[in-house]
Amino acid sequence: TLFEALYDYEARTEDDLSFHKGEKFQILNSSEGDWWEARSLTTGETGYIPSIYLAPV
């Protein structure tokens, strides 16, 4: 399942991933609670993103 960003997000740590509204992600690991490891389909970068900023596509 792909997810789309509902809002912009600016990374706060080196493990976080910055993204823009409308960016799409492949989720790599969603077992860490509210922060999911994801790969951006726009940039190819991976990192942790807040799941509350996402909606399934």
Rank of each mutant, 00 (worst) to 15 (best):
Y9E: 01
I27T: 02
I49A: 05
Y48P: 02
V57Y: 10
L2D: 04
S31G: 10
F25G: 00
D34H: 09
S30V: 11
G22D: 02
S40L: 06
K21T: 07
D16L: 11
E4Y: 15
S40M: 05
W36V: 07
G22P: 00
L17A: 02
T43H: 03
R39H: 05
A38R: 00
F3T: 02
N29H: 07
A38H: 01
Y53L: 12
D34Y: 15
Y48E: 02
R12C: 13
Y53D: 02
S31K: 11
F25S: 00
D15N: 15
G22N: 05
Y9N: 02
E4S: 07
I27E: 00
I27H: 01
S51N: 07
Q26P: 00
A38E: 01
P50C: 13
H20D: 06
E4K: 08
S31V: 10
E14A: 14
T1E: 11
K24V: 14
L28M: 08
Y7M: 11
Y9L: 04
E23H: 07
H20A: 11
F3E: 00
D8I: 02
T46D: 03
G47P: 00
S40C: 07
D34I: 12
K24F: 11
F19D: 00
S51L: 06
T43I: 01
Y48M: 14
T46W: 08
T13I: 07
T1I: 13
T42G: 06
E45S: 09
L28G: 02
T1C: 11
T42A: 11
T1D: 12
G33I: 11
E45R: 15
E45P: 00
K24R: 14
Y7H: 10
G33D: 12
A5W: 01
I52L: 13
I27M: 03
F25L: 04
A38Q: 00
D8Q: 05
T46E: 08
G44L: 07
A5T: 03
T42I: 09
S18M: 03
L17M: 15
Y53N: 04
I27R: 04
I27W: 01
K21W: 04
K21D: 01
E37R: 11
D34E: 13
V57D: 06
D16I: 13
W36Q: 02
E4G: 04
Y53S: 07
D8G: 07
T43D: 02
I27Y: 02
S51G: 07
R12P: 09
E23W: 08
L28T: 06
H20P: 05
N29D: 12
L41K: 04
D8M: 05
I49Y: 02
D15Y: 15
G44R: 05
N29L: 06
W35T: 07
N29I: 06
G44K: 05
D15T: 14
Y48W: 15
K21L: 05
T43S: 10
D16W: 10
S40V: 04
G33P: 15
I49P: 00
A38T: 02
R39Y: 11
L54C: 04
E45F: 11
E37N: 08
K24Y: 12
